[in-house]
């Protein structure tokens, strides 16, 4: 089995290319539809994401790219926890899990304080 560093490196490298690729598609669609970066963008609505992607709406690809970018380090943490737990490094796994919990609390408190 590959060392954990190699597996995490692969996740980060491929993930960042996918995320930037989604944003690049979004830019292409913005240009095609004549949308300026300074136009008012639709807010993030997870329920509308699939429909926007299917309709080739730039906001769908841009939001998915944004989520992919911000989710990448969190996926790295998640994979670290799984690998460390599986290899008996309980301390590192617990620390990673605690960091994920902090981020989750940030999401919950952020959503609660939303206007």
């Amino acid at each position: 089995m590959r060392p954990i560093e190699g597996r995490l490196a692969q996740l980060m490298a491929r993930g960042s290319v996918v995320a930037i690729g989604l944003l690049a598609i979004g830019i292409g669609l913005m240009v095609a539809r004549g949308i300026s970066p300074l136009d008012v963008a639709p807010s993030l609505d997870p329920g509308r994401l699939v429909a926007d992607l299917a309709a080739l709406h730039p906001a769908g690809y841009l939001w998915l790219g944004a989520i992919a970018i911000l989710g990448l380090p969190i996926a790295r943490l998640g994979l670290s926890v799984v690998v460390f737990a599986g290899s008996g490094e309980r301390r590192s796994a617990i620390v990673g899990l605690a960091t994920l919990a902090v981020i989750f609390v940030g999401v919950v408190v952020g959503l609660a304080g939303r206007g």
């Binding site: 979004g26 970066p37 993030l44 970018i69």
Partner: peptide
Amino acid sequence: PYVLGPTA
């Protein structure tokens, strides 16, 4: 998202 795309 419209600002993030080109900037990122």
